[in-house]
Amino acid sequence: MTDYTYSELKEYRQQRIVLASKDHFELNRLHDELMIKAVEISIERVKEELGEPPTSFCFFVMGSAGRFEQSVWSDQDHGIIFKENSKLAQNYFLRLGKEIAQGLFITGYPLCDGGVMAGNPLWCKSLNEWSVQIKNWINEPSWETIRHLLIFMDGRSLAGEDLFIKELKQEACSLIHKDHLLARMLDNTMLLKKGVGLLGQFLTETHGPHSGLLNIKEKALYPYINAVRILALKECITESSTLSRLQKLSEESIPTSKRLLYEKQFYQLLNFRLLFGDHSNYDSGHFLLVSKLSTHQKKEVKDIIKNGPHLYQFVRKLVEKEP
């Protein structure tokens, strides 16, 4: 029995988040702590309502939480894998999924627009059903199923049986290799938005509430995240964060000097986002107030942004070489 509520977690979050926001790793450790505690409360509540879980399970997070790359504000993306399939189990874990979503929401994590949440039957399945679903995604690839697959591959367990998600990811990876799906997966994320113009100027937002700010998520972070995810898949690395994926890559995939450079640049980006974003709300957190950057920092950000497409091209060539 936990002796605190979601609202108390929210308060705890508010007390701790400002200090934690000065460092990328500290911030994400705090997010993990908060999410784990919220999930614990949810489990207790559902136990009171429906009794003990009918079978063992794994609750996992995806998206930026899965990648251990959350900013101050971050929305929810999560799912559940349970072991034994039964109608009872399915109802139980769907209920748990909804409880968790609500709990996280109260704690301070907005709901996922795309419905990637454990209360959605698509993301809450038994181990067997998950296995079938992933096979289906791979056998009948469409824009949407590849999207799902990409999201799933960033999964990371937060509660329960860690092994379930790891096994499924391994399984998915070997199927992806068998079906030569890497190029297609790269295509799915190919829409790169230019961050630096021909004259070397930042391409900031021209309209809307973030006019004049740089969308660092779309224009800088995404190219790195997406390219490195594909590299990790190529070697079936189950790690989910971009930095740890980079660290695990072999010399064969990417020369060490390049690997270290991208690692450094990506980490720098995460810090710039924390330092120069407006973190008063979820929407504005991904926008960089470039006017606040020093001349040196501006140059640094521009270099990082320009390197994104290079990394992308590099990965494309590598993937196309695959037999």
């Binding site: 909804k98 929401f105 709901l111 996922c112 627009d113 795309g114 419905g115 949440m117 959605n120």
Partner: peptide
């Protein structure tokens, strides 16, 4: 509409 989708998922 996303608000509706969200509601359906948490309720």
């Amino acid at each position: 509409n996303s608000a509706e989708t969200k509601k359906a998922i948490i309720q």
